[in-house]
């Protein structure tokens, strides 16, 4: 019996292995798409809303604002308003306040998250300080603006939306970029 060619099968299996290695990495963007659709995790886009809804409604919901400092992020960081009652479809402005309490220049990145997670896709940020890195000099303080609206199509059972911002210290990683900008 002539042995069947191992080469062809071997090539196919090796290609399969390589493809699955690639698939592992492809899961990263796939997951983002999946999150966009399902709002898993309350993950929110870090780019401005591409369209703002013109449809308004008289329904009101409560929006709560929360500030979280990630580990070793020593800034003082809080919302200027703890909560707002908002009409669906209307754009609102609010702000967070931050102060760099250290004696060093620091750069922060705020990461938004929404609870309940299914509300994430209805909360549209028109403008947000989380779109950019936030540098503060030693002792400097600043109000950082946020403009948003809640889409009218949001399911009836959602009465309260909590928007949280976690502040991360990214001084170390952004040092390079700053140097090249100056």
């Amino acid at each position: 019996m002539a042995p069947k060619s191992h080469k062809k099968l071997l090539t196919q299996l090796l290609l399969g292995t390589a493809a699955m290695f690639g698939f592992g990495f492809a899961l990263v963007p796939l997951y983002d798409v999946f999150c966009d659709i399902t709002g898993i995790n309350g993950k929110v886009d870090l780019t401005p809303a591409k369209y703002s809804s013109t449809e308004t409604s008289n329904r009101e919901v409560k929006i709560q604002f929360i500030a979280v400092n990630n580990e070793s992020m020593p800034w003082s960081f809080k919302p200027t308003q703890a909560s707002l009652r908002v009409k669906l479809g209307k754009t609102y402005q609010t702000a967070y306040w931050a102060k760099n309490l250290t004696a060093n220049y620091m750069v922060a990145q705020a990461v938004p998250s929404v609870a309940p997670s299914e509300a994430a896709q209805y909360l549209q940020k028109v403008d947000c300080f989380c779109f950019n890195r936030q540098p503060l000099n030693a002792g400097e303080q600043r109000e950082m603006g946020l403009a948003f609206n809640v889409l009218a199509g949001m399911p009836e059972h959602i009465k309260t939306i909590t928007l949280s911002y976690t502040l991360f210290d990214i001084t170390a990683t952004s040092a390079k970029d700053v140097a090249s900008n100056n």
């Binding site: 400092n69 580990e71 070793s72 992020m73 020593p74 309490l101 001084t171 170390a172």
Partner: peptide, 15 residues
Amino acid sequence: VLNGKPGTAMQAFID
């Protein structure tokens, strides 16, 4: 103590 040390287990205790 107040600001911690980034990248280590040393937290910022200021809050």
